[in-house]
């Protein structure tokens, strides 16, 4: 009996996360997918057909017949959407690379710092989260604007003669994304680098390996899981980023988050915006699967 109860108990424990995914991921996904196959209407809610279980099986079948994939063909017909997806992916990829280049030395420095100092350094990385994300992005407007702190400082020191136009350009978006997501890159990197056995480096140096080569041959490969985790944590949210381009970016920057907003709010086209969201999800599932595979590989190697 006891063994049976344990078996049921462990099944239940496993069932909880699956149930969670089912309710909070799969069900909303199916609803959004269904809306993406509908057509717009001036009604509440603003699409048709709307059907539920109250119509019985025949009502359900009737409703299903009215669904169509027109919205997806619409997305392919207008280069706007494809350009927006590509532009979002490029911006996310470039920002991820910059974040990695900036974050790696920080994480490395933290991992090599005296043990007593490390918790303080981790704290400093987390500290910005105590202020609202929105307010931190707004603060960048104050720094980057033509009469902002940065320009005042550069003019004061005589480095430039006329104010730089940074706000409302793509550069400002990169600054915003790199700044906002830097902790998500630094923390996983720090976690892997901190666990690393530095006697390996000492051994390499004893054997006459120059520091740079030792870094490339030992530290870098060992930190790969941290790099993958950090890059995914930055890349995936950056693709769908809406707030940063809206506040810091200029009008000319096309990003899928803004396109989706336009479809949903300006056009009131819930079906097309659902289709945009579904495709975005599919685009993101690929790197997520890549990430999971990389993690599984790393675990095997670790064993």
């Amino acid at each position: 009996m006891g063994r049976l109860a344990t078996a049921i108990g462990s099944r239940l424990v496993i069932a909880v996360p699956y149930l969670w995914l089912l309710i909070f991921f799969l069900v909303p996904f199916i609803i959004v997918f269904k809306i993406s196959l509908s057509t717009t209407a001036i009604a509440m809610p603003p699409y048709t057909p709307t059907f539920g279980l109250e119509g019985g099986i025949s009502g359900l079948v009737e409703g299903l017949k009215e669904l169509s994939a027109d919205n997806y063909t619409w997305l392919l017909d207008d280069p706007l959407y494809i350009n927006a997806y590509i532009s979002s992916l490029v911006i996310a990829a470039v920002s991820t690379l910059i974040t990695l280049l900036v974050g790696y030395p920080i994480a490395y420095g933290m991992a090599r710092a005296p043990t007593a100092l490390r918790p303080v350094l981790v704290m400093l990385v987390i500290l910005p989260f105590w202020t609202s994300f929105l307010i931190r992005v707004y603060a960048w407007i104050g720094i980057l604007k033509p009469e902002g702190l940065l320009n005042q400082f550069l003019l004061f020191t005589g480095i430039i003669d006329s104010p730089l136009v940074i706000l409302n350009t793509t550069t400002a978006i990169y600054i915003g994304i790199v700044y906002s997501y830097l902790p998500f890159m630094v923390l996983p990197l720090y976690a892997t680098l901190e666990k690393m056995d530095y006697s390996l480096i000492e051994a390499a140096q004893d054997l006459g390996c120059p520091p740079l080569t030792a870094f490339w041959k030992i530290t870098f490969p060992l930190s790969l899981p941290g790099i993958t985790a950090g890059c995914m944590l930055v890349f995936i949210p950056a693709v769908g980023e809406f707030v940063i381009p809206d506040l810091l970016g200029g009008s000319q920057t096309l990003m899928i988050g803004k396109t989706l907003w336009n479809e949903f709010f300006s056009n009131r086209d819930w079906p097309v915006s659902s289709a945009v969201a579904i495709i975005l999800l599919l685009i993101l599932v690929v790197p997520i699967m890549f990430f999971q595979r990389a993690q599984a590989n790393a675990r095997e190697k670790g064993l």
Binding site: S251, Q252, S266
Partner: peptide, 19 residues
């Protein structure tokens, strides 16, 4: 109407983003 709205939003996107 929804059709004109779409034309309007599309031309606006072109003006705002140049695309």
């Amino acid at each position: 109407d929804p059709k004109t709205q779409r034309v309007m939003t599309r031309l606006w996107t072109k003006i705002v983003t140049g695309q």
